[in-house]
Amino acid sequence: MDNKESFIVVDRVSFSYTAESGAREEAALKQVSLTVAAGEFVAIVGHNGSGKSTLAKHLNGLLLPTSGDVWVAGMNTKDEQHRWDIRQTVGMVFQNPDNQIVAATVEEDVAFGPENLGLPPELIRSRVDEALAVVGMSEYAEASPHSLSGGQKQRVAIAGVIAMRPRCLVLDEPTAMLDPVGRREVMETISRLNREERITVILITHFMDEAVKADRVVVMDGGRVVREGTPAAVFQEMDLLRGLRLDVPPVIELASRLRARSLALPEGILTVDEMVTALCQLRSRI
């Protein structure tokens, strides 16, 4: 089932955490279905408690559905014998880079995963070099991770996952703790991995300006998928976003207001540059 249409299939998944008392809590995921194609860049947005992180942890078998199924490259995450194949296929990156770094130097940290795979040393070397090059951190190979900025640490964490050669990266709010420079570095790295290395990317975020860069946006609320579509289509629904108290990107709000004043702006304006181009075209026709 490893076709392009359905690299990851989430099929009517519900999930409840178990409380300390042993009782099931209210479902964190309720009948969630989602398909991700190979090479796609999907952003999942929603508040804390919307279920987006719980969904992310299902994509490589860290959590298993209470009901329903998750398929990764044709493997069911419930299937014990595929557990390690799945973890190798889908790499996870979390919010806090400090919790993900284990070694004394950057290259040892990146080598940690491939070493655990039992690869021969020369292959480990080449994978580490490659992974550091992909995230633009080669010159820091021998540095101590603790001397790095937040954005650099997060790129090392991504390199550590990339060195395992996953086909898909799931990133759970990777920029939440970073400053603007760090956020930009990490977002550029993610975009490049998707575009040039053709790695499937699933980005969990509550920054709408990051979601705008995806091929598709999935909006979650109360454990359900409430909307799904291109960024242009989803962000057009400003009432829905406001109702959920998510931020509406200012450019999109401006485009909608200008259209309401009957300016003939094209659909799908998401960025400042697209807005400048559209306005200049319009002006040249006055």
């Binding site: 603007p180 420079v181 200012p250 450019v251 401006l254 400042v272 400048v276 306005l279 200049c280 002006r283």
Partner: peptide
Amino acid sequence: IGLGVPEMTALMAKLREMGW
């Protein structure tokens, strides 16, 4: 110095560059 400006401020600056 690695800081940005709000999106609407950036939009105005770019429009000015285009002669607005």
